[in-house]
Structures are given as structure tokens and as C-alpha cells.
Design a protein around this nucleic acid. Structure first.
Length: 726
DNA sequence: GTTCTAGAAC
DNA sequence: GTTCTAGAAC
């Protein structure tokens, strides 16, 4: 996620960042840096002690020198070494200064996972291979001292699973050259009740203020605990001191405060599915925000949009800057409105929903996301308040404390808003009547902000009561929380490996670990491509090309007008996860064969556009490259998974895969959860409620492709064709 | 990967 | 009532 602060002149406020990675071998430090740098919006340098001496291990002072050089050249720096002990990182923290923020990113992943990765690793830069890894990792982790703000960090982010890691990757890769991130500690969870008790005692006795950063209100623990929330009064006392981390973090957790600055996160109303003109909408947003902030003090407003390069966000940012709106009180965030706290460390107690008139879940975009994240609680609570909503109005719904959105993100209220509809395919379309449209959109924001103001007023009155309620239910809830399974994104391979390593005998078991790496079990239905690759002669009728290295066939269920598979014939190369440096030339062969076929099709139909790539986690065994035309005009494209497997980061472009294998020996594999993301047009990125609507949209959408697809030859077009930037 | 189908959404 | 999704079975 990206937090943009406007009103800051680029040169004056530009700060470089030193990110000190903290994590055991196998925790994913190098991958983290690579993932950020691949899509970064600011210059980064990765300083890795394992490779700093011409590709070999070097010294700490070499790292320090390189880091200082990079900072002098205006680059931000990743310190990629374990940094598990305070002393090991202290010299790097000193790189900070008025123009340099020092952050820590703690990859505090389960020891078993780090060990299993280290054990399986071969040819890693640190040369920590085989069974010895278990012993080393185990020993290092015993000395682990989690970083604290008191060491000199302005921001510390903790990751306890790969989902956390991905969120933090997103945060840093989204960071533009002049963006900054809020200070504080983020992402610690799974608090132990005993520890929490200690913190509560601490909270009560603290009184000496000690500021650590401008954004201390976000310095809170991410999940609820068996303790009740501190009452407003209690938290007032610790408002500034709660981030005095050297004490607070003892035992590994942070206090949670109930009295954050009341913050409303809201999506841009009507500009997505309802197709309201962005220029006009941004004027209204800025005007309404300014009016509200002039009247109501001590609140924050955050405009949120899921997509990078969102036009509405940049319009609003620029206009807000022109109007000198305080960037501490109003700013924009790129990210998921249902994950602002866990994803961006941004505490928003109220979020707005771009609702449908029936106040029902479904549709696409924000409405679906919020109802889904909040669970059935929101639907029930909404029903209690209203059965429908008219354009221009808002409905305030208190979120039950049982809702995951409340528990996880700290959202206490959802405000449903309905804006004007300018989309002829939606009900109550205003045609092109922008006089009416602007009036209704204005009313919608007025209603939204009034609703927010009423929550703020009532919260001040009732916070003690609500705190008490919370406490009385909390035992049960806390238990439920702890029983909630952590999100696991490990491959089956990892899980198997981990299951076989018991904590007590890690060192011993680790020695034999290299043998454990079993393969994914493929269902019989998933073997078809494998059989073809192994015995192409038996399938001659289905194949359009056979060579020693690859075979080419039309996908049996093409998801577009042209959809080919280029199959690797190497036995054992089941999927992208198996691909290593030694397969580079095979990958290049597959790519060039794919390109050859794409060009052949283009010579017949120059209007086609092709993309070549792999699924992060394929359903069918045997590495296969998809060569697919971007019309997606096919009766076989039937569901969300089909669409998202070709139109989210789950689809890895062949060019990128080759580059990654070349540079790092492995390809980034993206999460299967991508497959259940909302449906967005691959050209204009608009969201659609279901597959039929999406298909109807893409059959007409002539928008230019997003810039990421236009770079690096990710799209293959006819020789004289031109695809413009979006 | 697809097919089938219950039941949710409309 | 029809449309659409999503999970189970293969």
C-alpha cells in the first residue's frame, strides 16, 4: 500500500530510507528486497553481506561503506543481513539522520519454515546449505532480539507469515521518491495474554510523554487481546508515550490504544462502476473535504483506491495540495480499504462503503470487498438500520465487535454511501446530467461526513461503555482469535518438510532434510500435459509442433481466441517452482517458440495482442507456457479463477520469469488468493460484479493497457501495431 | 483442469 | 422465476 502525503515539496521533504532487514537465514530477506526492487517507484540498493565482496561474503564495514555511498547518491538502501541482535544492527541504525529514515522490517517467520527453506536451498548466496542450516538457524534464533523503536528506528514492521511479507513488499514497492511512511511499530500480533497483562500494567503507570514520530497514533498492536481495550481516559495518558518502545515492546508486543485520531477512510464515490467524471468528482471531493476539516477538528480523512496510478487519487492529491489542505488530516492511500491497518498500518475506525441501493453484499469493487471482509455481521447490522438507500444519502452502521473487520482492522463503523449513477448499464442512470449528478455526489459526501461526525461525537460520549462491553466479551473472543488459523501460503512442499521437523530435534532432523522435499501430489486429471510431454508421438494429432525440448499444442479449453501451450519436455520439471538457473536455456527456448507462434497468428490477424507467461501455481503438471491473446473471447472462460489466473500477478510474464531466474535462480510465485480477487478489466482496470458482466465489458473495452503491461515486451503486438500507454 | 449442482444473488 | 458462484468430485 502506498501512503501519499501531498503538500510536500519533493526536494525539501524528500527522505531516503535505510531498511534494515531482520531475519534468520531462510526468512526471505533477499526475496523481500528483490520483490520490492522489481516494482519499486524509488531507487533502491540492496546491500548483502553475503555477496558484497565481488559476489562473495564480505565484512560489516564494507556494507556500511556501501550503504553510506548509496545514500550519498540519493538511493534508499536495504541492509540484507540477518541483523538478529541489537548490536549487529546498531552501526547501520547510525546511518540515519535528518534526511535519512531508518526502518526495520522483521521477517519473524516460523523457525521451521526458515529451516526448511535453508535446508532445501542450494546455491544460495550465503552458502548455507543442507542439514547444517537447521543447526545454524536454530542457534541464531536463540539469540534473536526483536528491534525496538528505542534503537533509533523510525518505523518497524513485523511480518509473521508470508501474507504479512507480501503486504510489506507492496508498501515499500509502492513508495515513490518523495513519499514517506508513518512512524511507529506495525504488524505484531498473536499477543500472549501474559505479555499483554504486563503491557496493561505498564500503560497504567506511564505518564512521561516521549514522542518518537509524527504518527504515534498508529503505533498500536494489531489484534485484540484478552484484556479489555484501555478506556479513553487511560489511553489519553499514554497517547504520546505508548511508542516508547524500549519498554513497551519488552516481551514482544505493543499496547493498543482506543483513542486514535478518529479516521474515516472512504473510496471515491461513483467514479468507478457508476462512471462519474473524475475531474468533476475530484473537485467535489476536495471541496467537501476542505469544508469538513475546516469545521471539525482532530479527525483524519483518507481517500482510498485499490489501483496504482489511480487517476482519481492523483487528481484529488493535486487539488488538495493547491487548496493547502493539511496533509496530516487528509491524504490518499493506494490499497485495500478492508486492510488498511494490517496492510498499511493505518488505523481507520470508520470506513465508507460505496454501497448499492439495496445495501446488500455483492456487485464488485468496494461493496463486495467490505461485506466480505466484515462477514455476515455487517449484513445483519445493516438490515437493522435500513433496507435501502437513495442516491446522495448515507447510512451509518455500527460494526459488531464480532466482525473480522472490527477485530482485525479496528473498524467500528461502516458508512454506506450511494452516489449518483452515470452508467447506462446500472439502475437510475442520470444520462449525462452532470448538474444533477454533481449535486447528488455533493450530497453523498455531505451525508458521509455528517455520519462520520456523528460517530465521532457519540464515541467521545460512549467510549467507556463500549470499552466495557468489549472487555466483557473478550475472553471468548480472544480464544476464538487464537484459534483462528494463521494464513499459510507455504507450498505443500514446505508444509511436508516442516511437519517432519520437530522443534526439539530440529538440528538432528535437519541433517537428513535434503531428502524430504517430496513433490506435490497431482490428481490423475492433472497429468494430461505430462503424458503428452513424455510421449508426444502418442498425441501427434493434438500437437502443432514437436521438438526435442518442447511441444506446442492448442489449449483444450482455450480462454481466448488464440491460446497455446508450450510444454517443456524435461521430466521432473512440473511447474514454475521447480525451475532453476540450469533451466534458463529451456525457458528461453519456450519463450522463443511462443513468440514464433504469436507472430504467426499476428501475421494472420494484426489486431490480436499476445501475452506469454506462466501460472504461479498451475493445476496441470508439467511446466507449460501460456501464449494467449488478450481478447479473452472464449466460451471456456467461465469463472473468476479463469480470469484472475491470466489477469492478476498470479500470471507471471515469461520475460520476467526469465529475468528472475537469470538473476536470482528462482521466479517469484504469487499467492493463489489472487485467484479470488475481484474481477477487473485488464485494460481499464474497472471492476465488474460477475463474469458475464465482465465479459460483456471486455468485448467493448478499447482502453489502453496499463503501463506495466506495455513495458519490457510483456505484450506481443503486430510489427506495425501500436499500443498506447494508459 | 472440467463438470455438476446446491443455493445464493438478483 | 433465472442467473451466477463456488465447492465437491473426478
Amino acid at each position: 500500500m502506498e501512503v501519499d502525503c501531498q503538500n510536500k515539496s519533493r526536494d525539501e521533504n524528500r527522505k531516503d530510507i535505510v531498511v534494515i532487514l531482520v531475519g534468520a537465514p531462510g526468512s526471505g530477506k533477499s526475496t523481500f528486497c528483490e520483490d520490492v526492487m522489481r516494482t519499486a517507484h524509488r531507487p533502491w540498493v540492496r546491500i548483502c553481506q553475503d555477496t558484497i565482496a565481488n559476489g562473495k561474503a564480505g565484512t560489516k564495514s564494507q556494507c556500511l561503506k556501501s550503504a553510506a555511498d548509496a545514500l550519498r547518491n540519493g538511493k534508499s538502501v536495504f541492509i540484507d543481513r540477518c541483523n538478529l541482535e541489537r548490536e549487529q544492527r546498531s552501526d547501520f541504525v547510525k546511518l540515519g539522520g535528518p534526511q535519512v529514515d531508518v526502518h526495520a522490517v522483521v521477517l519473524d517467520l516460523p523457525a521451521k519454515l526458515c529451516i526448511s527453506r535453508s535446508v532445501k536451498r542450494s546455491g544460495h548466496e550465503g552458502n548455507l546449505q543442507g542439514g547444517k542450516a537447521a543447526a545454524v538457524v536454530n542457534r541464531m534464533l536463540q539469540k534473536k532480539e526483536l528491534p525496538k523503536l528505542g534503537e533509533g528506528f523510525s518505523r518497524i514492521t513485523f511480518c509473521q507469515n508470508e501474507g504479512d511479507v507480501q503486504n510489506v513488499v507492496n508498501t515499500y514497492s509502492a513508495l515513490g521518491p518523495s513519499d514517506t511512511l508513518p512512524s511507529g511499530c506495525f504488524g505484531q500480533k498473536n499477543p500472549d495474554a501474559k505479555i499483554q497483562l504486563g503491557i496493561m500494567k505498564f500503560l497504567k503507570k506511564v505518564d512521561a510523554p516521549d514522542t518518537v514520530g509524527p504518527d504515534v497514533q498508529t503505533c498500536v498492536s494489531k489484534q485484540d487481546t484478552s484484556e479489555k481495550l484501555p478506556s479513553q481516559k487511560e489511553t489519553e495518558n499514554v497517547k504520546l508515550s505508548s511508542c516508547k518502545a524500549s519498554e513497551v515492546t519488552e516481551g514482544g508486543d505493543f499496547p493498543r490504544k482506543a483513542s486514535d485520531v478518529p479516521t474515516l477512510a472512504f473510496p471515491s464515490i461513483s467514479t468507478s462502476d457508476f462512471q462519474f467524471n473524475h475531474e468533476k468528482a475530484s473537485d467535489i471531493i476536495v471541496e467537501k473535504v476542505k469544508g469538513f476539516l475546516d469545521e471539525v477538528g482532530n479527525v483524519r480523512l483518507v481517500l482510498v483506491d485499490l489501483s496504482h496510478g489511480s487517476k482519481i487519487l492523483s487528481l484529488v492529491r493535486n487539488k488538495a495540495a493547491q487548496k493547502n489542505i493539511d496533509s496530516n488530516k487528509f491524504f490518499t492511500v493506494v490499497g485495500d480499504i478492508t486492510r488498511l491497518y494490517t496492510g498499511a498500518g493505518l488505523r481507520c475506525n470508520v470506513i465508507a462503503n460505496a454501497a448499492n441501493w439495496r445495501l446488500k453484499p455483492g456487485g464488485g469493487g468496494v461493496n463486495a470487498a467490505i461485506f466480505s471482509a466484515a462477514g455476515p455481521d455487517l449484513e445483519i447490522a445493516t438490515k437493522d438500520r435500513a433496507g435501502s438507500i437513495s442516491p446522495g444519502s448515507a447510512v451509518v452502521v455500527p460494526l459488531p465487535s464480532t466482525s473480522p473487520l472490527y477485530k482485525r482492522e479496528g473498524v467500528t463503523h461502516v458508512i454506506h454511501v450511494l452516489g449518483p449513477n452515470m452508467n447506462p448499464q446500472r439502475p437510475n442512470c442520470l444520462g449525462n446530467d452532470y448538474i444533477k449528478g454533481c449535486k447528488i455526489l455533493s450530497e453523498a459526501y455531505s451525508s458521509l461526513f455528517e455520519g462520520f461526525a456523528s460517530i465521532v461525537r457519540n464515541q467521545t460520549k460512549t467510549v467507556v461503555k463500549r470499552g466495557g462491553n468489549y472487555g466483557s466479551e473478550s475472553n471468548k473472543k480472544c480464544k476464538g482469535l487464537r484459534e483462528e488459523p494463521l494464513v499459510h501460503m507455504m507450498s505443500e512442499l514446505d508444509e511436508k518438510a516442516i511437519l517432519s521437523v520437530s522443534t526439539d530435534t530440529m538440528e538432528k532432523e535437519g541433517l537428513e532434510h535434503d531428502k524430504v522435499g517430496g513433490n506435490k501430489v497431482w490428481g490423475t486429471w492433472a497429468q494430461a500435459l505430462y503424458h503428452i510431454a513424455m510421449h508426444p508421438e502418442k498425441h501427434k494429432n493434438d500437437l502443432i509442433e514437436i521438438s526435442d525440448d518442447v511441444v506446442v499444442l492448442n489449449d483444450l479449453y482455450p480462454k481466448a481466441q488464440k491460446h497455446l501451450l508450450v510444454l517443456a519436455r524435461l521430466d521432473g520439471l512440473d511447474r514454475l517452482a521447480d525451475v532453476q538457473k540450469e533451466h534458463l536455456s529451456l525457458l528461453r527456448t519456450m519463450h522463443s517458440v511462443g513468440i514464433k507462434w504469436a507472430k504467426k497468428f499476428l501475421s494472420d490477424d494484426a489486431s490480436l495482442i499476445f501475452r506469454l507467461g506462466y501460472h504461479s501455481a498451475p493445476s496441470m503438471r508439467q511446466l507449460h507456457l501460456h501464449v494467449i491473446s488478450q481478447d479473452f473471447n472464449s466460451i471456456h472462460l467461465k469463472n473468476k479463477k479463469h480470469w484472475n489466473s491470466f489477469n492478476t500477478a498470479f500470471f507471471r510474464d515469461s520475460v520476467d520469469v526469465i529475468e528472475e531466474i537469470d538473476e536470482h535462480g528462482k521466479a517469484t510465485l504469487n499467492d493463489e488468493r489472487m485467484l479470488s480477487m475481484e474481477l477487473r478489466c485488464h485494460r481499464c482496470r474497472s471492476a465488474h460484479p460477475n463474469i458475464p458482466r465482465l465479459k460483456s465489458h471486455i468485448s467493448n473495452c478499447q482502453a489502453n493497457f496499463p503501463i506495466t503491461l506495455l513495458q519490457n515486451d510483456r505484450l506481443v503486438i503486430a510489427p506495425n501495431g501500436a499500443v498506447n500507454e494508459a
